[in-house]
């Protein structure tokens, strides 16, 4: 098997790590982690469906495009739960989802990679991450910031979407000439996905530790 397939399968399998940690705290999750859990389940289902379609040599872009819209919506909702200005965030959510739906339906179509939607999703989510970090620096919600689940989740989102945006910018260079091909792009994308899932897993683990320590302290005599 070729190297890029190892990376692709590892990227596909890496979703199991955060999902397993999400299972550990199924009933006692905070709202933001429940949103992340929903996203992980949708991601797993989308990957499984893609795998089935690939087996029958069918087009899988439409799954990726729909998943990207769902992911964008869930991540904006996740950030909305942490930030103020809900009306502004709701407007951004509605506008961006509407645009992505229009793009998948009428502009670029469902059976090609929706690069336009992807770039817009990247820009929106990078902005949300940076604004969330700014909000953390202003509000200073906890002494040990490294124990905050949302910090790791935000870093995961920033790494994945920031990296994807960068890949989009250098795409022409990476796929240029004989030495370049789309494989490089997909390997780097898969590596970003692995890093994102690991960071999500750390965030979920931090949430799990928090819930467990508060449960243990409430049981203490």
């Amino acid at each position: 098997m070729q190297f890029e397939f190892y990376i692709a399968y590892f990227s596909f399998g890496s979703i199991v790590i955060p999902l397993f940690i999400a299972m550990l705290q199924w009933k006692r999750m905070t709202d933001e982690l429940k949103i992340l859990r929903t996203l992980l389940i949708i991601s797993l289902l989308s990957d499984l469906l893609s795998l089935v379609l690939i087996t029958y040599s069918l087009n899988t872009y439409w799954i990726g495009n729909i998943f990207m819209i769902a992911q964008l919506a869930l991540l904006i909702i996740l950030f909305r739960s942490q930030l103020q200005y809900h009306n502004v965030i709701n407007s951004i959510l509605l506008t961006s989802i509407l645009f992505c739906l229009l793009n998948v339906g009428f502009i670029q179509g469902p059976f090609v990679f929706n690069s336009l939607s992807n770039v817009i999703a990247c820009l929106i989510l990078i902005s949300f991450c940076l604004y969330y970090f700014y909000h953390l620096l202003n509000d200073l919600p906890t002494i040990h910031i490294q124990h905050l689940p949302m910090l790791w989740i935000s870093f995961g989102v920033l790494t994945y979407y920031g990296g994807n945006f960068f890949l989009f910018l250098v795409k022409n260079y990476l796929t240029y000439g004989e030495t370049g091909s789309h494989k490089t792009m997909w390997i780097l994308h898969n590596l970003l996905n692995i890093v994102k899932n690991i960071l999500f897993a750390i965030g979920l683990w931090k949430g799990y530790r928090k819930v467990r320590s508060s449960t243990l302290s409430s049981l203490a005599p």
């Binding site: 960068f166 030495t179 370049g180 490089t184």
Partner: peptide, 17 residues
């Protein structure tokens, strides 16, 4: 399947990332 140039790109960009 991957050329040497592509491997270098991946390593450099991965490390940089």
């Amino acid at each position: 399947g991957l050329s040497q140039g592509e491997v270098i790109y991946i390593i450099v960009l991965g490390s940089l990332g």
